[in-house]
């Protein structure tokens, strides 16, 4: 990405474009990746509630795949996940493995 020169900047470092954090892909910060195991998922949506980065996608009241562009791999979802009969629906897997 070409960086802007000082004449092109918004006055006072104001960001005039709302919601542009969406363009910032923080997924590259991740050391561990959450993996969703649909068979163990009871659709309680705890992961969706607890995710600090809105990286659990939900459609029609049901969760789908993770948004890996924004998931930082904090592991909160995996920790909170009650799973089904003792089997977690989210597990953390080391990136690159």
């Amino acid at each position: 990405m070409k960086l802007k020169g000082w004449k092109e900047l918004e006055i006072g470092a104001v960001i005039p474009e709302p919601g542009n954090a969406d363009n910032y892909n923080t997924g590259s910060w991740r050391a561990f990746r959450p993996q969703w195991i649909e068979d163990n998922c009871i659709q309680c949506l705890f992961c969706w509630i607890y995710c600090p980065d809105s990286a659990v996608t939900v459609k029609d009241g049901k969760r789908g795949e993770f948004d890996y562009d924004h998931c930082k791999g904090c592991g909160i979802c995996a920790n909170e996940c009650p799973g089904k009969k003792g089997n977690k629906a989210i597990v953390m897997v080391e990136e690159g493995k």
């Binding site: 960086l3 802007k4 020169g5 000082w6 004449k7 900047l9 918004e10 006055i11 006072g12 470092a13 104001v14 960001i15 005039p16 709302p18």
Partner: peptide
């Protein structure tokens, strides 16, 4: 005002973190 926060139709962010890739450009401005 240039970017009034009370203009809710045009929301803006004041005071973001600016790192070495841009800080000196803001000072030059």
């Amino acid at each position: 005002p240039t970017h009034p926060l009370l203009d809710v139709d045009n929301p803006v962010t004041y005071g973001p973190l600016v790192l070495p890739d841009y800080f000196i450009e803001f000072k030059r401005a």
